Amino acid sequence: MANDKKILIAYASRTGSTEKLAQAIADGIRKVGDVSVDVKRAKDVKPEDAVSADGYAFGSHSAFEYMGGELKLLFEELYNVRNKVSGKPVLLFTSGHGGQVAALESMDRVVGVFNPHWVKPGVAVEGMPGEADRAKAMEMGAKLADAVKKYKYIIV
Score class of each variant (00 low, 15 high):
8 L>T: 09
10 A>C: 06
11 Y>M: 10
11 Y>R: 05
12 A>G: 05
13 S>I: 02
14 R>W: 10
14 R>E: 14
17 S>E: 09
17 S>Y: 11
20 K>E: 15
20 K>I: 13
23 Q>T: 06
23 Q>G: 10
25 I>T: 14
26 A>T: 13
27 D>L: 06
27 D>N: 09
28 G>Q: 07
28 G>M: 04
29 I>N: 01
29 I>W: 06
30 R>G: 02
30 R>M: 09
33 G>K: 15
34 D>T: 14
34 D>Y: 14
35 V>F: 03
36 S>C: 05
37 V>I: 10
38 D>P: 00
39 V>H: 13
40 K>F: 12
41 R>Q: 13
41 R>F: 15
43 K>I: 15
44 D>R: 12
44 D>Y: 15
45 V>F: 08
45 V>H: 02
46 K>D: 13
46 K>R: 14
50 A>N: 04
51 V>G: 01
53 A>N: 08
58 F>Y: 08
63 A>F: 05
63 A>Q: 12
64 F>V: 08
66 Y>K: 04
66 Y>M: 13
66 Y>C: 09
68 G>Q: 14
68 G>L: 11
70 E>A: 12
70 E>H: 06
71 L>G: 00
72 K>G: 05
73 L>C: 08
74 L>T: 06
74 L>C: 04
76 E>A: 12
79 Y>M: 07
82 R>T: 07
84 K>M: 07
84 K>H: 07
85 V>H: 00
85 V>Q: 00
86 S>C: 09
86 S>H: 11
89 P>Y: 13
89 P>V: 06
90 V>S: 01
90 V>D: 01
90 V>L: 09
90 V>R: 03
91 L>A: 06
93 F>A: 01
94 T>Y: 00
94 T>R: 01
96 G>F: 02
97 H>Q: 10
99 G>L: 01
99 G>E: 00
99 G>A: 10
101 V>K: 09
104 L>T: 05
105 E>K: 10
108 D>F: 03
109 R>C: 07
109 R>V: 15
110 V>M: 09
111 V>R: 00
112 G>R: 11
112 G>A: 03
113 V>H: 05
115 N>I: 06
116 P>W: 01
117 H>Y: 14
117 H>I: 07
118 W>T: 00
118 W>I: 01
118 W>V: 00
119 V>K: 06
125 V>Y: 10
125 V>S: 03
126 E>R: 13
127 G>L: 03
130 G>H: 10
131 E>V: 13
132 A>W: 09
133 D>R: 14
133 D>E: 08
133 D>C: 09
135 A>R: 14
136 K>E: 15
136 K>L: 15
136 K>W: 10
137 A>N: 10
139 E>L: 04
141 G>H: 04
144 L>H: 09
145 A>C: 10
147 A>M: 03
148 V>G: 03
149 K>R: 12
149 K>Q: 07
150 K>R: 11
152 K>W: 11
153 Y>D: 06
154 I>D: 15
154 I>H: 13
